[in-house]
Every structure is written in C-alpha cells, then in structure tokens.
C-alpha cells in the first residue's frame, strides 16, 4: 500500500513537471501535490510529514531550485494536515477545499519567507495577490481527483472514532 501511494505521488509529480507546466492558467500552474498530501494525511495522519517531505524533495529535484525549498513547505503542510486528520472531524463536506486553500496560502508564505531570508530569488508582496488567488483556484480543482484516488488506494481507513466517516468525497 505504501508503494502504491509512493507511485501515485511520483506519477503526480511527473505529470506536474512535464504536462501541467505546459498549460499555465492565469499565469499559474496547479500544484496537485498539495491536495494529495492533505488527502493522504487525513487517512493516514502519521504519514503526513513523510509524504510532504518526500514530495517536496521530488519537486526540488524536478524543478531546478535549491534542495529543501519545497521540501520545507511541503513538510509543514503535511504535518499540519496530519494534525488536522487526528484532531478534527474530517467528514465536513467543505473541509478538503478549505484545508487545500489554506495549505496553498501557507506554502506561499513559507516560500516567500525562505526566498527573502536566503535571497535566492527576488520576491514582492505581489506574490500574494492575483497569482496566489489563481494558484488557490487551480489547486482546488485538484481536490476531488486527489481525494478520490486516495480513497481508492487507501481503502481501509485509519482507526477511526465513531463519529468519523469518510463520505465527504
């Protein structure tokens, strides 16, 4: 099962780096890894940080930036999603979309801070304007497929409380 999840993550990042980069929308490219990390973390909260770190490192390798840049932001996103998966009722219908949107914003904040501190790339507050809105919108489009794929791969839910149900997606 872990191999299947790893394979799914690898395939997602290959699609991201080869196909999705050819079709920018509103100048932005969707990041399907974020909703996928959240979907996996909701079902396997302990996997959240590891999945986030692994996907982040893969993105660092494929995208040509400094190693650790996306690994840091995805690690934090994965850990946060895992915490949510353990503490919050995940049967809220809008929860996946809300968490995806917040995670996208969080990643952008982390990236801007790291880039500003390390002086890797020039950044401006414009990164939080229309580009961020476009990024959030595009990532939200990937929520349904990410959660559906995760449900297929991770059929047996984690040990859940009586009130938790995964009938959101």
């Amino acid at each position: 099962m872990a191999f299947l999840v790893a394979g799914l993550l690898l395939l997602t990042e290959l699609v991201h780096s080869v196909w999705l980069v050819r079709v920018p929308v509103w100048g932005q490219i969707p990041d399907p890894a974020i909703p996928l990390i959240i979907a996996i973390s909701f079902r396997r909260p302990d996997w959240g940080p590891v999945v986030g770190l692994g996907v982040g490192l893969l993105q660092d390798l494929l995208f040509g930036g400094s190693l650790g840049l996306f690994a840091l932001s995805k690690l934090i996103v994965g850990h946060g999603a895992g915490v949510l998966g353990r503490t919050v009722l995940v049967d809220q219908p809008l929860l996946p979309w809300i968490v995806t949107a917040l995670a996208t914003v969080l990643q952008q904040v982390i990236l801007v801070i790291v880039l500003a501190v390390t002086d890797l790339l020039p950044v401006s507050f414009g990164a939080f304007g229309q580009p961020l809105l476009a990024q959030v919108g595009l990532n939200l489009l990937a929520v349904w497929p990410a959660f559906a794929a995760t449900r297929l791969l991770l059929r047996a839910p984690r040990a859940a409380g009586p009130r938790e149900r995964f009938h959101v997606i």
Binding site: L53, G56, S66, L67, G68, L69, A71, L72, L75, V114, T118
Partner: peptide
C-alpha cells in the same frame, strides 16, 4: 531540511 537548505 533546514540543514539541507542552508547547505544548498
């Protein structure tokens, strides 16, 4: 990760 990033 921070160590890795710093080294990079």
């Amino acid at each position: 990760v921070l160590v890795l990033l710093t080294g990079q």
